[in-house]
């Protein structure tokens, strides 16, 4: 076991430099440390000016996503021991604009999430007195996988289609749309299908499949997108049916 490991970390201080650079730090190696622990060590002991986002340290909050040796990872789940002997390259998430050091701007992502109307929509709300909308375990199972998303944006950083075309609505947002479409309490699947069928929607996806591979929660956005394409394609042929015209 080495006594220490080198981290090459992206620095970008817009008031000082016009492009990001890599700065190396030597941190002690401990086998139970993850990359986030090493970053916190740097911040506490070596360089207090390093900026990065983190919160829960346990793979739930989704704020510590970064590129570790070129792959999008939750740094709280990326053990230093898996990247020996180093140096370990830690960079901000791909394809997002960098604000400072390891911090990216997620405004675009937030807009996209909202665009798919990720809440339960009813044609007619039932009165409160009628009680809850009940659901069987099988009905829950239909969408549960897609509801596990923690908005960590690793899937966007793995998606070259998003990299090439920033307007693409992207993996997490489409998976979230599918989560509500498959929910037995929701009645707005058609509305969302129309949103996703727009120019920057699901048809942009070429099924690279990396989004599902990097997802720390096994949400499988790539699967969600292909399933929605199938729904969209079947829907397209409805006009052939006498009862199918809208």
């Amino acid at each position: 076991m080495p006594p220490s490991v080198t981290l090459a970390v992206t620095r970008y201080r817009p008031e000082q430099e016009s492009e990001p650079t890599l700065q190396t730090y030597e941190v002690p190696f401990r086998k139970d440390w993850v990359v986030l622990d090493a970053l916190n060590y740097i911040k506490d002991n070596l360089d207090g000016s390093l900026s990065f986002r983190w919160s829960c340290r346990m793979g739930v909050c989704g704020s510590c996503g970064m590129m570790v040796n070129g792959s999008p990872k939750l740094t709280c789940a990326a053990f230093l021991s898996d990247y020996l002997p180093g140096p370990i390259r830690v960079e901000p998430l791909n394809y997002f604009p960098i604000i400072r050091d390891l911090v990216v701007d997620m405004t675009d992502f937030m807009h996209k999430l909202k665009k798919v109307k990720p809440w339960i929509i009813r044609a007619q709300e039932k009165p409160l007195a009628d009680g809850e909308y009940l659901q069987t375990p099988d009905q829950l199972e239909m969408y549960k996988q897609f509801s596990m998303c923690i908005n960590c944006m690793l899937c966007y950083s793995a998606c070259p289609v998003y990299g090439l075309e920033q307007s693409f609505i992207g993996p997490a947002a489409i998976a979230l749309a599918q989560r509500y479409n498959l929910d037995s309490r929701d009645e707005a699947a058609r509305e969302r299908l129309e949103i996703l069928s727009e120019h920057d929607g699901m048809w942009q996806c070429t099924f690279v499949g990396e989004c599902s591979k990097v997802c720390p929660k096994n949400v499988d956005p790539a699967g969600a997108i292909q399933q929605l394409k199938l729904v969209g394609a079947v829907d397209w042929f409805r006009f052939l049916l006498p009862w199918g015209t809208r």
């Binding site: 817009p14 701007d105 405004t107 070259p160």
Partner: peptide
């Protein structure tokens, strides 16, 4: 530049 953030850096693919 955006209204909310002073300076962005965006890498080209």
């Amino acid at each position: 530049y955006t209204p909310y953030h002073p300076k962005w850096y965006r890498r080209r693919m």
